[in-house]
Design a protein around this nucleic acid. Structure first.
Length: 543
DNA sequence: ATCGTGTACCCATAATTTGC
DNA sequence: GCAAATTATGGGTACACGAT
């Protein structure tokens, strides 16, 4: 999962997005039923033990998930429940039975009966919402997967109100899928917006493609690398799709730094070609047509072309062949968000000694190959690093090779933390990639979804978008496609898509006219795309 | 370490609502 | 009005935790 809505601090974790609303809280009045049983709800205070159970268990679960995706979690404690959620204790006094007390979490209309039940929903709230929530109470597309799946509760106004809400939600989802099969979908999307009273006129809408200020979209290292290219400084905005629009929570810390007075609307954006989503305010984005795309596309293109050439010059076929002729070799592979090439410097995940002060060692890739066990490995030189304190930071040129001249180290993919950047020598996050996806898939998914959205937008933009969007010329040449590594669920769709994608990519960018029914599936596929960490690059798919 | 107690969680089923 | 879908309820039990 891609956790974009979590604030990690020394004190613990906060989830900055919420679908909770106090209107879903139960009434605290005492209700007496016909048999004389007295029942009432009591708000559980933050200082109570029950509350601690929730904050530690939920914090623990969230912390684990964050760490799994490579983030450092100083303290796995949920500092507060997401906005609008509260813990209640149901107190039931029976006439002839002992009193019963049950704790429940209310907030989004569902009644979570344990931290474990809320766990998945919390992760979803914290995530970029690319995937539907898999908690037991959230609506599923397939009807009634497991018996007695979901409940929803509003004890104050039993049934009516709450049920209508749920009805509308599920039906709008159904309508959406139905509409997607046809053509128009704008109308059905609006239905849901209205429901959430989020409609604001003359502002960008969900599914619009807009430009987002790169200050908020790219990391500084990415910007640096872009700016170092000719024309790179012309790029002030980055294309993105609006995935969600929401109102700011009261104490939401907006990512721009302003205190949100002017506009309380937030957009959840998915920048094209980048992993993850961003939550930005109105003033950080501009409509597509408000920005001249010519310069930008040219600059990006030239950057890409330059990289290509550079790469071609660097290839060293002879050495490759001499060394491990029998193994298929690659010139580059995608690992998560980064492209790793021969001669690159990368960081390894484990320190050579297990002192925490030591920085991750650097590894220079000499070759990338598929070994006899069909595992991708890299051979190269290892450079241990001293703790950050010693010497100056230009140390990368003073690196001392650990291996002797005629020897190389071999490492597994799992040992790679990410690229080493001269300007950012202290990065210690790991890429932590587990799911393999083909290069074709990644690129097609991105371009296909864009095409889909573009159809909804103005036609005049198609050309521009595609200039940016189209997969660049392949750089890696490999003799065989990658073996499927252990994967999770997505594998099946992935295989069925393969053929159609192949065609659309090979005929380059001009496929806006190819009316491919698979496009609809692509909207589902995009869910997978941004966070699939491991991508291989191939153009000769000989399966 | 083990026992006992109360609680949290899970599950089956009863009850109710909805769709045809 | 019936069947299916959904929700509420209460029992069973694993587990945590304090007492022995």
């Amino acid at each position: 999962m891609n956790f974009v809505n979590v604030e990690i601090s020394e004190a613990g974790l906060k989830v900055s997005y919420s679908d909770g609303d106090p209107k879903h809280h139960p009434s605290i009045e005492i209700v007496v039923d016909s048999s004389g049983t007295k029942s009432h709800y009591r708000l559980v205070g933050r200082k109570e033990q029950k509350f601690d159970v929730y904050s530690t268990k939920l914090g623990d679960a969230l912390g684990k998930a964050l760490e799994k995706s490579g983030l450092l979690v100083p303290k796995a404690l949920l500092l507060e429940l997401p906005k609008g959620y509260e813990l209640f204790e149901n107190n039931k006094e029976y006439v002839n039975k002992p009193t019963r007390k049950d704790t429940y979490l209310f907030g989004n209309g569902s009644k979570y009966r344990s931290p474990a039940e809320f766990e998945e929903h919390l992760l979803w709230l914290a995530s970029d919402k690319e995937m539907p929530c898999s908690c037991k109470y959230c609506p599923k597309d397939s009807y009634r997967n497991n018996a007695q799946s979901r409940r929803s509760v509003d004890t104050r106004s039993p049934s009516k109100f709450n049920q209508t809400i749920q009805k509308q939600n599920t039906s709008s989802i159904k309508r959406l899928t139905a509409a997607q099969k046809g053509k128009s979908k704008a109308t059905s999307v609006n239905a849901k917006d209205e429901n959430l009273s989020l409609r604001i006129d003359n502002k960008s809408r969900r599914e619009d493609i807009i430009w987002a200020d790169i200050k908020y979209v790219l990391h500084s290292s990415q910007r640096d690398s872009l700016f170092s290219e000719e024309g790179g400084d012309l790029i002030k905005y980055w294309p993105a799709i609006i995935r969600e629009k929401s109102k700011a929570m009261h104490n939401f810390i907006d990512p721009i730094g302003n205190n949100s007075n002017n506009s309380s609307v937030f957009y959840t954006l998915q920048p094209l070609m980048l992993a993850g989503t961003k939550r930005l305010q109105q003033n950080a984005i501009i409509p597509w047509l408000a920005y001249s795309t010519k310069n930008v596309t040219r600059a990006i293109e030239s950057k890409l072309r330059k990289e290509d050439n550079e790469h071609l010059l660097k290839t060293n076929e002879i050495r490759l062949l001499q060394q491990m002729e029998s193994y298929p070799h690659y010139k580059a592979i995608f690992l998560g968000t980064e492209l790793l090439k021969e001669d690159d410097y990368i960081r390894l995940t484990r320190p050579s000694r297990d002192s925490s002060t030591e920085r991750l060692p650097i590894f220079k890739i000499n070759t990338i190959f598929l070994n006899s066990q069909k595992k991708i490995q890299m051979s190269g030189d290892l450079f241990p690093r001293s703790p950050p304190s010693s010497k100056n930071d230009g140390e990368c040129f003073m690196l001392k090779k650990l291996n002797k001249d005629k020897f190389e180290y071999t490492i597994d993919l799992s040992e790679i933390a990410g690229r080493y950047y001269k300007l950012h020598p202290n990065i210690n996050q790991n890429m932590s990639c587990t799911i393999p996806v083909s290069y074709i898939d990644r690129m097609s998914i991105i371009s296909e979804t864009t095409k889909l959205y573009i159809h909804e937008a103005t036609n005049t933009n198609i050309q521009n978008i595609q200039n940016i969007q189209t997969p660049r010329k392949q750089m890696a040449k490999r003799s065989r496609p990658l073996p499927p590594l252990r994967t999770k669920k997505h594998k099946i769709d992935h295989l069925t898509k393969e053929t159609s994608i192949d065609i659309s990519t090979s005929q380059s960018s001009q496929s806006s006219k190819s009316t491919n029914i698979k496009k609809v599936d692509m909207t589902r596929a995009k869910i997978v795309s941004p966070r699939i960490p491991f991508l291989d690059e191939s153009d000769d798919n000989s399966d």
